[in-house]
Simulated scan of single mutants.
Amino acid sequence: MSPAPDERDRIRAAMDRILADTPEHSNGALTIVALAQEAQVPRNALTQRHLDLKNEFYEKVRARGATPDSEKRLRRQVTKLKELRAADAEELAGLRADVEALVGALHQVQMENRQLRQRLAAPDPAVRSLPTQPRPRAVRSRS
């Protein structure tokens, strides 16, 4: 499908309307999607056929001191992701400390268990093993 003969003119007119804050067919956002909607052309007209107009639009947006909406959105997302990453790093540090403490406690219990078993195996043990409790049987429902 070939582009409409007036496609470039429609894109330029749409660019002027968006930059003048008078959009007719879009929400007026400073994005290529809004520009394509405003010009009533497919988005790929700007991303594939008329790259020079896309670049010109972004240059004009930056020249007027505005940041494109897509860039603002991405900056907010980057900020949020950095915050999440910092929170994850803090949680991970806490979990690592917990693992070290648990490994230490496990080692201590293993040492105590080994010492008790050695005392129990001695000829005259000062330690006496307690009888084990029978496990309770599972109660089956009667159907």
Rank of each mutant, 00 (worst) to 15 (best):
M1W: 01
M1S: 04
A4Y: 01
E7F: 06
R8M: 03
D9Q: 11
R10V: 05
R10C: 04
R10D: 06
I11M: 11
R12F: 02
R12L: 12
A13H: 10
A14Y: 02
M15L: 09
M15G: 00
D16Q: 10
D16M: 05
D16T: 08
L19C: 11
L19W: 08
A20E: 07
D21L: 12
D21G: 09
T22L: 12
E24R: 14
H25G: 06
H25E: 13
S26K: 01
S26P: 06
N27Y: 10
G28A: 12
L30A: 02
T31G: 01
I32E: 01
I32M: 02
A34N: 06
A34D: 15
Q37D: 15
A39F: 05
Q40L: 10
P42W: 09
P42C: 07
P42S: 08
R43Y: 10
R43A: 01
N44W: 13
N44D: 11
L46N: 03
L46W: 04
Q48I: 10
Q48L: 12
Q48G: 00
R49W: 11
R49M: 05
L51P: 03
L53R: 00
N55Q: 11
E56V: 04
E56M: 08
E56Q: 13
F57V: 01
Y58V: 03
E59N: 07
A63Q: 08
A63L: 08
R64F: 06
R64N: 09
T67E: 12
S70I: 03
E71Y: 00
K72F: 09
L74P: 00
L74W: 06
R76E: 13
V78M: 06
V78T: 09
V78E: 06
V78W: 00
V78A: 10
T79D: 06
T79W: 00
L81V: 00
L81C: 02
K82V: 01
K82Q: 07
E83Y: 01
L84F: 02
A86P: 00
A86W: 00
A87R: 09
D88H: 11
E90V: 00
E90G: 04
E91P: 01
A93S: 14
G94W: 09
G94P: 08
L95W: 10
A97K: 15
A101N: 13
A101V: 15
V103N: 12
V103D: 13
G104N: 15
G104Y: 10
A105Q: 15
A105T: 14
L106R: 15
Q108H: 15
V109I: 14
Q110D: 15
M111R: 14
E112H: 13
N113F: 04
R114T: 07
R114E: 11
R114I: 05
Q115Y: 03
Q115P: 01
R119Q: 15
A122I: 10
D124Q: 11
P125T: 12
P125K: 12
P125M: 13
P125E: 14
A126C: 13
S129C: 11
L130I: 06
L130S: 11
P131L: 00
T132K: 13
Q133E: 07
P134W: 05
R135N: 09
P136T: 04
P136D: 02
P136W: 03
P136H: 04
R137V: 03
R137C: 03
R137Q: 08
A138Y: 04
V139D: 02
R142N: 14
S143W: 14
